[in-house]
Structures are given as structure tokens and as C-alpha cells.
Computed example of a mutant assay.
Amino acid sequence: MNLYFRLFWLLFWRMRRARTIDFLDVSRLEFRAWPTDCDINLHLTNARYPALMDLARTYMLSEMGLLKPFLQRKWLPVVNASEFTFIRDIKPLHKFNIDTRLLGWDDKYFYIEQRFVSQRGLHAIANVRGLFVCKGRKITTAELLQAAAFQGEAPALAADVLAWKQLLQAKKQQNQ
């Protein structure tokens, strides 16, 4: 339930005060780990990380000025894959940020990095692979870049992201 409150807070309060960032800039959204976000080990439960990441990616689109135009086109983001590395726990009532940035893209997918950071340091890193769809149709990268008015070159994907991409392709081929 508290994710709905956070979503309303994001849509009706935070986005109205959002700064403007460029397509490849880092978006930062602050959170606090509420007791309802935590498990019996008294830290942020693993299931809460992807839910908060959804909000942070939505906020990034808003800061880029793309959320409203994409929604008007009825383009909806879909996560295709994600991978997490947990480093340090986040305790109840602890403040932290989710830093979100676009790592790059290929013909079909966008690759996003999300870092959970606080004054204590880095807590977790997650990579997300996603795309946009509209009425069952995949929006091409070219369409999306054109709608975003991005003219630059795609950043080169880091070696670890390329290896992850190859692993995902191998899994897909093995399970067809």
C-alpha cells in the first residue's frame, strides 16, 4: 500500500519540482526505508528494491521531459530483465537515493543502471534491460530516440553489460 502513496507523491508532488536532465544524465530520487519496507531481518526486503526502482525510472523519464509525451503516445515501459548485486543493507528509517542512468541501447532494448546510495556508501547496484510497447507493438529504438530528440551516438556498453546481454541471449536460445 505504501508504494501507492509513494507513486502519488511522485506524480503529484515530486515531479512538479523535478529538475531537467539530459538524456544521458543521472537522475537521483531520495527515499526513506519505512518499517513496512523491511523484513524480519530489519533491513529493506529484496522485493522492495525493484518496486522502488520502477518509481525511480518513472522519475528519470519525467526529469528528461519524456514521461508526458510517451504517455500521450500510449508508450508503456516494460522490464525485460534485471540483475542485482547487494552490497550493504538498508536499515529501517534510513535515507537513501536511487541514482538512475541510461547506460546505452541496441536495436531493441535500453540498458539502465540503478544504484542505491546513502551516506553509508553503496548499498546495491542493479542493471535493467527494457523496452517500450504500445498496443502489443514494440517501439523501436529509432522511434524512441527520435521522440526524445536525441541526436548523439549510443554510448558503448561496458564489458559487464555486454556479458550480461550474451547470457540473456544464451538463456533465451536454451529455452526455446
Rank of each mutant, 00 (worst) to 15 (best):
I40Q: 15
A126L: 02
L44D: 09
T141D: 01
A51G: 08
F23T: 01
F96R: 07
Y109G: 04
T140N: 05
L144R: 09
S118Q: 12
L44F: 03
D39T: 03
L44W: 07
N97Q: 14
V133A: 13
H43R: 13
D107C: 03
L52R: 08
L61I: 00
L7Q: 08
E30H: 11
Q72W: 12
I112W: 04
H43W: 13
F84A: 01
L3M: 02
D99K: 07
F116S: 02
R137A: 00
F84T: 04
T58N: 07
L157Q: 10
C134M: 14
L76H: 10
N127M: 14
F8C: 13
Q166K: 11
L11M: 08
V128Q: 06
W164Y: 15
E153I: 10
G136I: 01
F96G: 00
M64K: 12
I112K: 01
Y109L: 12
L66D: 13
L42I: 07
L61C: 03
A56M: 13
N175H: 15
G104M: 03
V161T: 01
V78L: 15
D160R: 13
L55G: 01
K165Y: 10
F70E: 06
A170E: 07
I98H: 02
D160E: 15
N2A: 13
Q146I: 12
F132G: 06
A154T: 02
H123Y: 06
R137M: 01
L29E: 00
L122K: 07
R101F: 06
L157R: 10
N41L: 05
G121W: 02
A170S: 13
R14V: 01
T20E: 09
L167K: 08
A154M: 00
G104D: 07
E143M: 08
V26T: 14
F116P: 12
F70Q: 03
A147I: 06
R57M: 10
T58H: 09
R14C: 00
A149F: 13
C134D: 15
Q166I: 10
A149L: 11
R137D: 00
L122A: 05
E153L: 11
L157T: 05
G121Y: 07
L145Q: 00
F116E: 02
A33I: 04
L157V: 03
V26E: 14
M60D: 04
H123I: 05
W105C: 05
M15G: 05
W34G: 00
Y4N: 10
A142M: 11
L3P: 01
T20Q: 11
M1D: 15
K165Q: 14
A163Y: 14
W164C: 05
I139W: 09
K138G: 06
E143H: 09
W9H: 09
V161F: 03
V128T: 10
